[in-house]
Design a protein around this nucleic acid. Structure first.
Lengths: 191, 191
DNA sequence: ACCTGAACACCGTTCAAGT
DNA sequence: ACCTGAACACCGTTCAAGT
């Protein structure tokens, strides 16, 4: 069934694991190589540099997340329900894999990369745009620019998830229970 | 008038400057010390470690930002106008001082710090809560939990600013012209 | 009290060399 | 093609020593 993984795939897998378990400072090329029994600079035979390895980690995670969202969009019965599910899934991923989340949505070096990552992210974005347009057509949601509504929802989700991860939501009253806030936004978008 | 700055103050000032000009990787204790003609480990006589120096940089910037917001809240004639001004000022700061913005709102090491930073941030948050409550009282804004509305606005602002800084807003259609999106949110909050 | 200089452990990266 | 080992430049941090 599953092929035995190549060295390159093993490097990506162990980098992901080290990131999830110990945060970015735990991911050194040395620790990644040693974890699979290679010398400290073996990764350079498979990736141009550290940034390229991390980009590969991000790419895999992005694909998984995009696939999960599209699955929700297909399964759920109404656009509103699908949107609420996606919101929950997004915040759940950020909470469960905080370090990976920051790599995906926060790391400037990863974000600059043109190419595959951007294409994948755009496809996911467009899937949400379609959901909102469907909701508008069915009369569930307010009229308005669906792309802008999506961008506002995306910004809110990222901002709230990110503020929580970086410890900026502890004291303020409205910021405990981050999860309800995007739902309030979705309510505001209802007709 | 102005006292001649202490070594500690000079370290904070030059760290801020190096951060703004060259990003986080340009701020090494060595470069900071050398910039004011001291040996590479002189900063340790004034700050416990690098994190403490950066926290001091963040503290000063936070105070300035909070003061600017409160000034807007006092000057503007209506709550709505004040909120729009604050939104513009916030996004403007993020665009003009991207590296400092990330230190203030994104660095996990800074965010964890209990104490002054958190108090200052909370005070600014509460100033916005009061603005929203005033808007509700005057009938400009929808009823609802003002703290939650503030949290949603804050999350949106941070998320949009942060996505822009990390290069995640380039391709998607609704995400160019980030500035209008929080205004859409404010519109949704209108009665 | 404040600063200097040497030293340590740890990085990412490069390079010559081995199979 | 893939891997190893030595080496380099650069960090944050510690420590003994100077004034």
């Amino acid at each position: 069934m599953t092929e035995s993984p190549s060295t390159k795939e093993r490097l990506i897998a162990v980098a992901t694991q080290l990131l999830d378990e110990g945060g970015p400072e735990a991911v050194t090329l040395r620790s990644v190589a040693h974890a699979i029994g290679l010398s400290h600079n073996a990764p350079y035979k498979h990736f141009k540099d550290k940034r390229a390895l991390l980009a590969a980690v991000a790419h895999m995670s992005f694909q998984e997340m995009g696939a999960a969202f599209k699955k929700i969009a297909q399964k759920e019965t109404t656009p509103s329900r699908a949107l609420r599910q996606i919101v929950a899934q997004y915040l759940d991923f950020a909470e469960r894999s905080p370090h990976r989340y920051r790599l995906l949505f926060n790391d400037p070096e990863i974000g600059q990369g043109r190419g595959e990552l951007e294409t994948e992210a755009l496809a996911t974005f467009e899937a949400v745009v379609r959901l909102i347009k469907a909701g508008q057509k069915e009369g569930e949601l307010k009229r308005g620019d669906a792309s802008q509504f999506t961008a506002l929802l995306y910004g809110s989700l990222h901002g709230l998830a990110d503020l929580r991860l970086s410890g900026r939501t502890r004291s303020a009253k409205g910021m405990d229970n981050i999860g309800v806030l995007p739902l309030i936004l979705l309510d505001l978008l209802k007709k």
